[in-house]
Nucleic acid binder design. Sequence first.
DNA 1: CAAATATCATCTCATCTGAGACGATACAAG
DNA 2: CTTGTATCGTCTCAGATGAGATGATATTTG
Lengths: 166, 166
Amino acid sequence: MPRSPPPGPAPLRLAEFLPYRLSVVGETVSRAFADRYEAEFGLSIPEWRVMAILGEGEPLSTQEVIVRSGMDRVKVSRAAIRLAAKSLVARTPHPQDQRAHILRLAPKGLSLYRLIVPRARTLQAALAEALTAEEQRVLDVILGKLHRRAASLRGWKDEVSDPGLE
Amino acid sequence: MPRSPPPGPAPLRLAEFLPYRLSVVGETVSRAFADRYEAEFGLSIPEWRVMAILGEGEPLSTQEVIVRSGMDRVKVSRAAIRLAAKSLVARTPHPQDQRAHILRLAPKGLSLYRLIVPRARTLQAALAEALTAEEQRVLDVILGKLHRRAASLRGWKDEVSDPGLE
DNA sequence: CAAATATCATCTCATCTGAGACGATACAAG
DNA sequence: CTTGTATCGTCTCAGATGAGATGATATTTG
């Protein structure tokens, strides 16, 4: 028997739907890395991100860490508190603003950071080697474009058909 | 004075780190879409995914929805319960297995589904138009490769549907 | 200057999340 | 059949999450 033709619009194949696939891939990758950071270094993803930001060099205010890490203020605040409790991060008063703290890696945190970085690079390589060099290059461009577009979709209420600028 | 050279391994630039970027982009896209589904249709992402899977045609057991949606059993179970409470999904006993349910879109759910699909396509188009056709094609390949690789890094956990089969 | 407003980091609380427990059912081995 | 093990969907509970409130400090305004 021929099956009855689907009424209404053609069904959407979730498995081919871009936002779904991005979300699933992002989550799978995140979990894979979170498992390692937790098992090998006892760090959550928010904690690792704060350490990674501070490991880039300069001491930063919580606010700057928020901006650079792409996390919300509550996550950063909690991660910083936990890292301070583990003596991995030092929190000193901000000289120009009594409300703020300056965060920097404590000696113990710097040691751990130096241990993590090569491992993180190895893990990234294990992921990236699934792609050709060209794919890696294109992915870099694509992620930038998608992130900007998604961010603007979030801020912006209504219709989508602005043939506008970029 | 030149600043003191950084000791230890070269610092890792989080903003250029692939797993970080994937996670941030995935999350931003997810939120953008979750906001719309919630505001326009009163659905959470898990609820929308279950509806999308069921909207593809066949009635499915909860277990099959779990596999196809890439979500864990608790999320699917809760989404199904909520959808049933809204009369969007019907849950009938599984003929061969008394433990299982068969899920299918209820009439009200089918109407809503037909309303959502064109909107979802529009939203996806708004996202995808940030990319060239070639980039879209390459991204498709890349996401498949990354997902398989990340899943195997996790330890063979899930084998979610990949486009390109069938 | 004082008063009004804005911003900082944290806290609160309602909600979401998922690992493991659970009872029910299915299936396999003896 | 009986027993043991696997799987079904749901529940429990501890932890994560984030919007909004909070108190402290900064900044702007008059």
